[in-house]
Nucleic acid binder design. Sequence first.
DNA 1: TGCAAACCCCAGTGGAGAACCGGAGTATAC
DNA 2: GTATACTCCGGTTCTCCACTGGGGTTTGCA
Lengths: 118, 118
Amino acid sequence: MQIRQIAAQQNIPDRYLEQLLATLRRAGLVRSQRGARGGYLLARDPWKITLYDIVSCIEGFDTQADTEKQPSTAEGLVISDVWQEVRQAAETVLQKCTLQDLLERRNARQQLDIMYYI
Amino acid sequence: MQIRQIAAQQNIPDRYLEQLLATLRRAGLVRSQRGARGGYLLARDPWKITLYDIVSCIEGFDTQADTEKQPSTAEGLVISDVWQEVRQAAETVLQKCTLQDLLERRNARQQLDIMYYI
DNA sequence: TGCAAACCCCAGTGGAGAACCGGAGTATAC
DNA sequence: GTATACTCCGGTTCTCCACTGGGGTTTGCA
């Protein structure tokens, strides 16, 4: 798909989407075809890409981001540990969720909507 | 304890800490004693206060914060759902963690440090 | 071959929210 | 009565994210 199409469908400024896709490309999640009739395509199958891959890529997940600036008191270290657990819990949720899952969920929801409409 | 003591120990500007404590007080998590020899104390026992109480109080957890601005497309709703799951996972971790737990962890860590020091 | 359409890179802007002062006021132990 | 604490409120940075702009380079196609 081309940036313009995605931007129009999802209502995102195309210049901004361009940056996001460039980041995803550098992380090897999508591939790009330059030139006229170019565009983007997924680098892997939809069930082999998790939300964790995407999120950790565009929002650079420094696992130790807060550890560095803590004065390493006993309290600070304990707090860091808990935050680490929270982050871990969130990450496992994202890791279990693939693009394929999202797609299926969307289709299921659309089916539901149609039934309600009838 | 008095604001000054906490601020000095944790290396936080006292005027800022004052605001945070005021928020906690309004949420009923701490009580305050005014006047000379005044200060703050926990409103409940340490094992009856969870990290979730604290975090959701000072950083007002709008459960539906992102739902309102999504154009409610099928995609947007699915994304909201996943985010809701992530948030839920993080919250359960915080809900399981009481101040008493943190205290015990800190003490355990301090014991460890002493042993290493020997 | 020319050119338009697409991707590519980099630098900067704007706004929202968190972190952080400052001043003036009020309650209370001593 | 007074010093010491909390209390309220407004303003000031500071940082991060969403977003914009102006240049490229690559490539399909007439």
